[in-house]
Design a protein around this nucleic acid. Structure first.
Lengths: 339, 339
DNA sequence: GTACGCCGGGAAAGCGCTTTCTGAGAGCGC
DNA sequence: GCGCTCTCAGAAAGCGCTTTCCCGGCGTAC
């Protein structure tokens, strides 16, 4: 990797290194003819400044880190899109990392981004309920912040970090109430890994709202699976194998609902005639399913934009954006069939 | 951004900078007690080496760049996932950039990645048919490669660059033949921007195979739209407005097919009874649609893995991976209704 | 015509590392 | 016991930039 350097440019332009640097950085105190020469030389040599050297000299880099669970999950894809748009507006590059829901990998990535002296680190994936992990993560984040690094988190809490907080609990509760309103009393939940706080919040909100109405799903009606299409598919099959179907199934994430929908279809069940199905997130494709999926809508791209915006606009004190989650009723839910 | 430096570590460990560096880089020629002290100091100070300084001193960085059209497009999301997995195996970070199909932005990103001294630049989005753009891109890529940078491209050609080449043309042709085999003679095509080579290849392959069978879709049966769900939706509506529906519609990308499917449903048409619909790519969700979508399957994650692998394993000469594209018949296509 | 102040460009230091070079001390053979 | 080699740590140079400092030359004021 032996690229053209500023020295090369300066030499062919016949000026000093300092002058070349000044020109390329838009200083106005350089005589026009010299400026021309430098520009011409840079152009001719296809010169690009070494970002590492710049970062070192300026003690600041042009990169921000974005850590999510899985880029290919439509939820994170949308969040990343929003975040990257804002980054692009600020001429920043984003380093994207997928943890695949491995807590250790998240810490490792934070560490790497710390080494990269990233301007900001965005944690977009929900947290894990694990004190040891929390401590280890803090051990990376705290020195980073003390050195001036910015941290912004999505769907999780951290002292001294700005946060974008979609209302997982409230959204799930609203959904439950809407479903109760349709007449359902017999529910099942397809849950993701309980260690994920997002999952826990959604299950909790859903349960609480049911409890208010005096409804309590039996323990075997809460099935846990991966937070993926296949996880939802497997969880739905598991549910089917456990006996009589409830009238309504809530999948804690749309991706799981998609898998469940197919599992139901494969089992010869019609949605919503035989069973109502609802998801969470409102990822782009679910409105195009047959039937279109009832879900809780989150402004996904907006979440990413806010996250990045928070991270890039330092504020004296910690800020929270609470983002409402609204129920979107579609055709996948209907009143239960009279028994 | 004032982080702990190697100097701090060396000082608190009571050794020289050189020794501290040696320890942290795993040199074996350091006495055990000194090694201990350095490790302890690094640990205590939560030290993380400055990647920029390392990159500068070692003249090599730990980042690779991946440029695609849109991360939130399931096609690229899957490709990115594959590529990032391989990168993670090599302890590399990936800088991800979305061009949103703006040719200039692609060039700008290449330029930025050049400045970042990225180990490799992967161009995952299809090319634009535009000689001026091609030249401008070359002006960035050539000096990069001459300086030792690696370039790998997906679905496009470039002299001196390794390439992963899914068989867009052949896949579309096979699909056309399968559709002809079902008895269709009356086709429409929902095409993306014709400036994109991938789109052009797919349309061409499809047409050629039809031509072999003596079938030629009328010009007004080729509708152009954005390569997105909404683009497909709009294109399908446009098609419907142009008069009698063909018996079979080919969308050049699954995302467009998804939009078309909904447009058809909204128009009261049943797929495949009233019209057969086929896509291209086999993005994860299309098998879960109702009806499941007939499409041309590409091993998306594998594409990304190969792309990254090619880029990271320098070879004396240019390599091409041709990737076959196989027709996957699902329920969205059926023989046409007898007229 | 002289003194002063500005303007603009060059020299050089320094960012945080790696790595070569150098040299001090220990261990060995004779 | 002397000189040799070998081991291992420190000094210092250098990676490619930015930026401060400095100095020469010019314009202005008197």
């Amino acid at each position: 990797m032996t690229h053209t350097t500023l020295g090369d440019v300066a030499r062919t332009a016949g000026v000093s290194l300092a002058t070349a640097s000044r020109v390329l950085n838009g200083s106005t105190t350089v005589r026009a003819d010299l400026r021309e020469k430098v520009m011409a030389a840079a152009e001719a040599l296809a010169y690009r400044p070494n970002a590492h050297a710049q970062a070192l000299a300026r003690a600041s880099s042009q990169v921000v880190g974005l850590i999510c669970h899985d880029v290919s999950d439509p939820y994170f894809a949308a969040v990343a899109r929003g975040a990257m748009r804002v980054a692009a507006d600020h001429d920043l590059m984003v380093m994207l990392a997928s943890t695949f829901r491995d807590p250790d990998r998240e810490i490792a990535y934070v560490s790497t981004l710390r080494a990269q002296r990233a301007r900001a680190i965005l944690l977009a994936g929900s947290a894990f309920q694990d004190p040891a992990w929390e401590r280890a993560l803090d051990a990376e984040l705290t020195p980073y912040q003390e050195a001036g690094g910015r941290v912004a988190v999505l769907s999780r809490h951290r002292a001294r970090a700005d946060a974008v907080l979609p209302d997982n609990r409230g959204g799930a509760a609203s959904l439950a109430r809407a479903l109760l309103g349709l007449g359902h009393r017999d529910f099942a939940v397809l849950a993701g890994p309980p260690a994920l706080t997002t999952v826990a919040d959604r299950v909790r909100g859903f349960r609480e709202a049911l409890a208010e109405a005096g409804v309590r799903p039996a323990p075997d009606r809460v099935v846990t699976g991966d937070l993926t299409r296949d996880g939802g598919h497997a969880a739905a099959r598991e549910l089917l194998s456990r006996g009589p179907l409830p009238t309504c199934v809530f999948a804690v994430a749309d991706v799981m609902a998609i898998g469940a929908l197919t599992a139901f279809r494969e089992a010869g069940l019609r949605v919503p005639e035989d069973v109502s199905l609802a998801g969470f997130d409102d990822i782009p494709v679910v409105a195009d399913l047959t039937p279109p999926l009832t879900t809780v809508t989150l402004p996904l791209e907006d979440l990413g934009e806010r996250l990045m915006t928070l991270a890039l606009a330092p504020a004296p004190r910690r800020r929270h954006h609470r983002v409402p989650a609204e129920v979107t009723l579609r055709a996948s839910t209907a009143p239960p069939r009279p028994a």
